Amino acid sequence: MSLGLGIVLFVIGAILAFALNATVDWIDLQLVGYILMGAGFVVALLSLILMARRRRTVTTSRTAVDPASGEQVRRDETSTPDPY
């Protein structure tokens, strides 16, 4: 969702900055467009970083000898670290 939000902000900002030919006395629409494009780029970049970080997994493998039975016990754990 955040990647889509970044793209939408960037597109709306590009429309305001380059395609819209209207003037409003109390606000500079071209500047607002540039600000929205920058915000969209930052949101998209942060979402890509968080998605790449979320896909990383940690695998732990341990082998030990059970003292009661003398058997070798193997334990495997796979987990995904919390991205936040």
Results as ranks from 00 to 15, higher is better:
Met1Val: 11
Met1Gln: 06
Met1Pro: 04
Met1Thr: 11
Ser2Arg: 04
Leu3Lys: 09
Leu3Asp: 09
Gly4Thr: 07
Gly4Arg: 05
Leu5Met: 05
Leu5Asp: 14
Leu5Lys: 07
Gly6Thr: 04
Val8Ile: 11
Leu9Arg: 09
Phe10Asn: 03
Phe10Glu: 04
Ile12His: 05
Ile12Tyr: 05
Ala14Ser: 05
Ile15Gly: 10
Ile15Leu: 09
Leu16Ala: 08
Leu16Gly: 04
Ala17Glu: 15
Phe18Val: 07
Ala19His: 10
Ala19Asn: 13
Leu20Ile: 14
Asn21Thr: 14
Asn21Tyr: 11
Ala22Gly: 09
Ala22Val: 13
Thr23Arg: 09
Val24Asp: 05
Val24Ser: 00
Asp25Tyr: 06
Trp26Ala: 03
Ile27Trp: 03
Ile27Phe: 01
Ile27Asp: 03
Asp28Met: 02
Leu29Lys: 00
Leu29Arg: 02
Gln30Lys: 07
Gln30Cys: 01
Leu31Asp: 15
Val32Glu: 05
Val32Phe: 02
Tyr34Ile: 03
Ile35Pro: 00
Leu36Asn: 05
Met37Arg: 14
Gly38Asn: 10
Ala39Trp: 05
Phe41Glu: 07
Phe41Cys: 06
Val42Gly: 10
Val42Phe: 12
Val43Asp: 07
Val43Ala: 12
Val43Trp: 02
Leu46Glu: 12
Ser47Cys: 09
Leu48Asn: 09
Ala52Lys: 13
Ala52Ser: 13
Arg54Ala: 15
Arg55Gly: 14
Arg56Glu: 11
Thr57Asp: 10
Val58Pro: 06
Val58His: 14
Thr59Gly: 08
Thr59Ile: 13
Ser61Arg: 15
Ser61Cys: 07
Arg62Pro: 07
Arg62Tyr: 12
Thr63Asp: 11
Thr63Asn: 12
Ala64Ser: 12
Asp66Cys: 05
Asp66Phe: 04
Asp66Ile: 06
Ser69His: 09
Ser69Val: 11
Gly70Ala: 00
Gly70Tyr: 00
Glu71Val: 05
Glu71Ile: 04
Glu71Tyr: 00
Glu71Phe: 00
Gln72Lys: 05
Val73Cys: 01
Val73Ile: 01
Val73Gln: 00
Arg75Val: 10
Arg75Asp: 03
Asp76Lys: 04
Glu77Leu: 01
Glu77Arg: 02
Thr78Arg: 03
Thr80Trp: 04
Pro81Ile: 12
Pro81Trp: 10
Tyr84Met: 07
Tyr84Asp: 12
Tyr84Thr: 14
